[in-house]
């Protein structure tokens, strides 16, 4: 135990210093908090407008959608808070920070992940949290071990999947130094996809966000399982319990991409 704590000490020291330094720019910090909430609200408005215009979409009512949006958005915001900066890998490369990571006795990826934390993104999470809370109240959910564990699985695995997306993006950006927008397609596209009912996806999207980057498992499937809904023909609702598998796949993919990227950076071929 003490040994494990000692091993975590370097990461804790860096993170603590990052948090302290952010609090010292108060004016900008407040501004960023408000901005983050606004952006989150606008993304929610899209769903609200659509469900205001029609009764239900993809077999979901607005109150049911609140759960999907809430879980997905909360998990994304928290992942963004913790590892969102990995998306800016080219900045680390240009500033030489990445080379410095190589000179320290910790794994490079862990150093990158713990090199920064954006507290301002905490505000962004309140939007998802509010939607989720509303969804939990408005839907008729039987509160038992089953529903609580599904919810916990969904949030936990959603967080891991989104965090993996950021790391995947970082790994690929070793190759696409000017193409961060390419990784945005699956990072922010993935976030957008996860807040949708997967039953409406065109086939290409279903392949990409159903399996390659398994966003359907982040919120949609667990919610169909939670509410005991039928689910899409190719995505039965019991798959909601398989979110940990999807998360494990996401992590594997992320680690492979990272490894591949680092090997490219070191020039080991591949």
């Amino acid at each position: 135990m003490a040994d494990a704590l000692a091993r975590l000490a370097p990461y804790r020291a860096v993170l603590a210093s990052r948090m302290r330094s952010q609090r010292s720019y108060r004016a900008n910090f407040a501004l960023d908090l408000v901005g983050a909430v606004l952006v989150g609200l606008m993304e929610f408005t899209e769903i609200w407008v659509l469900f205001h215009a029609v009764e239900g979409i993809g077999g979901f009512t607005f109150t049911q959608m609140l759960l999907v949006f809430g879980i997905a958005d909360l998990a994304f915001s928290l992942a963004d808070l913790v590892v969102g900066h990995c998306d800016a890998l080219p900045t680390y490369v240009r500033a030489g920070t990445l080379d410095v990571f190589f000179l320290r006795p910790q794994p490079v990826l862990l150093q990158l992940v713990t090199s920064d934390i954006s507290l301002r993104r905490l505000a962004r999470a309140t939007v998802g949290l509010a939607a989720l809370a509303a969804g939990l109240v408005l839907n008729d959910i039987a509160w038992d071990v089953r529903s609580v564990s599904l919810l916990a699985i969904a949030l936990g695995c959603g967080f891991v999947m989104f965090a993996s997306l950021f790391v995947t993006a970082a790994g690929l950006q070793f190759f696409l130094v000017n193409g961060a927008e390419m990784t945005n397609a699956f990072v922010y596209g993935g976030r957008y996809a996860a807040t949708q009912p997967a039953s409406v996806w065109p086939r290409v999207v279903a392949v990409v966000f159903g399996f390659l980057f398994p966003m359907a498992f982040a919120a949609y499937l667990p919610v169909t399982a939670l509410l005991e809904m039928p689910g899409a023909p190719w995505l039965p609702s019991w798959l909601g319990w398989c979110a940990p598998l999807a998360a494990a796949w996401s992590v594997t993919l992320a680690l492979l991409c990272w490894r591949w990227g680092v090997r490219h950076y070191q020039g080991a071929g591949g």
Partner: peptide, 24 residues
């Protein structure tokens, strides 16, 4: 590459929007 990347992002979001709006 940046131009191509922009296109991929446009296409991804376009397809996702198509899905939800068509369903609506």
């Amino acid at each position: 590459l940046a131009t191509l990347a922009g296109l991929v992002a446009n296409a991804t979001f376009g397809l996702l929007k198509t899905g939800i709006l068509f369903a609506a």
